[in-house]
Structures are given as structure tokens and as C-alpha cells.
Amino acid sequence: MNAVGRSVAAELRRVLTTRIWWILAIVLFGYTAFVAGVLALFLGDLGTALGTGPGLPPRAVADLVYATATSVGYVVPVLLGALIVTAEHRTGTLTPTLLAQPRRGIVVAGKAIAAAVFGLVYGVVGLLASVGAGGAILGLTGGDPLLDSGDTWALCLRALLAMALWGLVGVGLGGLVANQVVALVVILAFTQFVEPILRVVGAVWEWSAQVGRFLPGAASDALVGSGLFGSLGALDPDAAGMHSATLEWWAGGLVLAGIAAVLLLLSRVTTWRRDVG
């Protein structure tokens, strides 16, 4: 095995020998299943029958429900990616890590690739929750879960790609910040408050909606093809005077990959250069 391969294998082992990865997987599954289930219930035929739902076409409902794997779950691979780096600073294990592989670029590459692999794993877990719980409820309430549609499975593949990219973003961010507490606060504050507010406010004007397309969450939703925020305006562009703009799916993927690359590169030339000890 070459140096990068050894570094990736060691990194996967590092994650698997502590508990946080499966705790995050359980949280991801539970939360995604809950949100997907609730959405399926209120946007599906039951919602229409009760008069509470907006009466969306089945394709849009299925996309919205299944995309919760990323639109809700994307924070999980970011957290794992950040923890992969910051735990080493917090516990002092960066020293043995760098003794085994003193070339730091290879260490960063190993962590990034391992985080992308775990992103794929979380993608599968999230989709099991969103397609499983959401699809079951859509079917049970008389809606069409569209499981035989190629579009559904294309969305799932794009969701997997998005989750892998989010893992890279986490490693870049964790590497840049280094301090675990600061990294967790930044991630939770940005994903749960700052970006949602920016996206809502951004939808008020035409120009800000154009800029807002490049926010990481918006790019991710564009890549997957559906998301909680994009849907507010996109499904009904005239609603409450909201403006909406989304990138093409491939452009969303490129934006997200670009954000990850910039963060990784910045961390490599700053924090990763520092003296250890």
C-alpha cells in the first residue's frame, strides 16, 4: 500500500475505534426519518385530503421527502469531518499520527478521503431513513412513493455525492479552526442559524437570490435536486413575493466541491503548518 492508502486506512480505523461515528449515524437516522415522515404525512395525499397540504405533484413531494437525507442530514458528515481533525488536537493524538506519517499533506489527504467515505456511509443511512420512513408513509397514506422511478434513484446518487463532499468540507473547516469547541460552535451556528437566515433574507430581492445560490447549503440542495429551503420559493415562485434561484445540479456540485477545496487548501497552508507540541 502506498503512503496515501496507509493514511486513509489508518484514518478509517481511527474513526471506527471510537464511538462518535455510530452515535452520529443513529442521530442522523432518527432525525431524518422523523422529518421525512412528517413531510410525507403533510405534503402527501393525506395533507391534500385534510386540506392542509399545498397539493403538490407527487414528483415534487417525493423529491422533497427523500432529499431530507441531505437537507436535514448534511450537518452530520460535516461534524464527523471536523471531529476527525479537531479530536487529534484535543486529545494530543496528533503527535503519534505525525510520527507515523510526518508528511502532513498525506495526513490531510488521508483524513479528507476517509471523511468522504464516511459521508457516503451517512448518505446511505440518511437515504434509508428518508426513503424508508418517508416512502412508507407516502405509500400508506395513498400517495405515490415513486420508488420505481429512475429519477428517484438519480436523486439518491446525487445525495450520496453531496454527503461525501460535506465530509470534505468538515475536514477543511476542522483543519482551519483546530479547536474542537470552536469548530462545533461554528458548524452548528452556520448550518442551523446563519445560513437559513441568509437564505430566507436572500429570497427577498432578485440580486440577493442570485448571490444566495452560492451558499453551501443552497449549492448542496441544487446538487441533490431538492431541499427544504429551495422548495419554499421554487415550488411557488410568486408566493409572498419570494425570489428564488437555483444552480444546475452539476454547478451546485462544483460549488460545494470548490468550497471544500478552498477550506482544505487554506487549512493546509495555515494550521497544518504549525509546530505540534
Binding site: R6, S7, A9, A10, R13, R14, T17, T18, R19, A87, T91, G92, T93, L94, T95, P96, T97, A100, Q101
Partner: peptide, 19 residues
């Protein structure tokens, strides 16, 4: 400089893999 949640054997296994 060990992760408190990892066993000694796992710590050495990680090091062996990386090295």
C-alpha cells in the same frame, strides 16, 4: 497523547496501519 475512548490495542493497530 492517547484518545481516552480508544483501547490500547486499537491505538497500536492504528499506528501499525499508518506506519
Amino acid at each position: 497523547s492517547f484518545h481516552p475512548g480508544r483501547t490500547a490495542r486499537d491505538h497500536l493497530r492504528v499506528q501499525a496501519t499508518a506506519g
